[in-house]
Write a protein that binds this DNA or RNA. Structure first.
Lengths: 223, 223
DNA sequence: CAGTGGTCTAGACCACTCT
DNA sequence: GAGTGGTCTAGACCACTGG
């Protein structure tokens, strides 16, 4: 392995170029960069791939070509809003899987007409009879469950990690498959501790930051 | 673009193979897969790359080859422990940049002898005179600042997103550059609201989940 | 139609590790 | 030494988009 791979040298030079150009400036075609840099197009593409993953470049289909990504407008999305299902949604879909006693509610989170995340909640169908018919898809889910089924929710302990976009999620979020995403999941229990919901959210890290405003810190341990 | 790229067909078939094999089973060499699947090694590698990113395969140098990744031992790391600097650390380094009045404290988070994250905190040098000489590197940072400089911390509002491993971080975490990571950042203020610390943690998503136990949920909005 | 990015091929050389 | 993954090359065809 070379000490510094050529694709990484290319990436560094291309990054300098990106930093000099204004937003949305068309970027040189891959074949031209390949020629100018004296590297194969494959090597140039590997460098460009990482810059795209980092959100510095945007690639369009056909004659559109590559362009300098506009300074990313990062939307701050609160963990509270995710759990309470208060974020702006689109394409809310309710699916039922009778054999497995599972109801799935899926929605696309939207900010400024851009898809930034996917929210998916699973419920036990036997606990929520008639859910698919009664749920209108606009009320925040927890509020609906409270109102229609008298559920009282207890604390949640969400956990957070990274995930790669499946082809399906990639289509919903307008990214390429295998794009890294931020994943947040939690189990919702009622006040007696019985599980009620299992939820999962993925967010585009380049479009949204997850904020945690309600964090209670423990007092520092003292001897 | 083909409806289904060949590399994705390969990935699907390879994933089936991974699921059938026990942990740590040596995987067929790329050239053999290329031959058996009737695809070029480049295409096979693109499929393998994604399986490696997803933590299903592990690639070793030289004659080691590729192997089925052991079922991932995911360590649950609390947000509280990150902020309070209570997680197990190694290689604690204090750097000072006199010209910019900045002290940087960097440490590698460790679980079961595996690096799972990097923690980095910046402090104003002028506010903490003699820090580099006084800090022993073992006391949790917030506790030390409390004890040695009488700092009393207020609430924090951390935010969370994804990031790509820089070559430097990649070396610390034993991953390849551009591996997607989970990023957590926060600003620490004292009780008067003055900023005290700026901290940043990156975690290997395949090794660690960030848990948020202290989440206070707002009451659902009611009309 | 021309040019773009997306995919794919069939080679090649290198550094590394195991036997 | 043999075989592995990591990198790189010089081509090729395709789907798509803009003028």
């Amino acid at each position: 392995m070379p000490a510094i791979p050529r694709y990484y040298q290319a990436k560094t030079r291309l990054l300098d170029l990106v930093n000099e150009l204004p937003d949305n400036t068309p970027f040189p075609p891959e074949r031209e960069l390949s020629d100018v840099f004296g590297m194969s197009r494959t090597t140039i593409r590997k460098a460009l791939d990482e810059l795209v993953l980092e959100g510095r470049l945007i690639r369009g289909a056909g004659r559109q070509g590559t362009a300098v990504a506009p300074r990313k407008q990062v939307h701050r999305i609160g963990l509270d809003a995710l759990v309470q299902d208060l974020a702006a949604r689109e394409q809310v879909v309710v699916r039922t899987s009778g054999a497995q006693d599972v109801i799935n509610v899926e929605s696309v989170l939207v900010r400024r007409d851009e898809p930034v995340g996917v929210r998916s909640t699973c419920l036990r169908a036997s606990r929520f009879p008639g859910f698919a018919e009664r749920y209108d898809g606009t009320t925040p889910l927890r509020q609906f469950l409270s109102d229609a089924y008298e559920i009282r929710f207890g604390d949640v302990h969400p956990w957070c990690t990274t995930a790669l976009a499946t082809p399906r999620v990639a289509r919903l979020l307008d990214v390429r498959p295998a794009t890294p995403l931020l994943s947040v999941a939690w189990l919702g229990h009622d006040l007696r501790g019985a599980p009620v919901e299992r939820s999962w959210v993925v967010l585009r890290g380049d479009r949204a930051h997850l904020t945690m405003q309600g964090l209670r810190l423990s007092a520092p341990a003292r001897p």
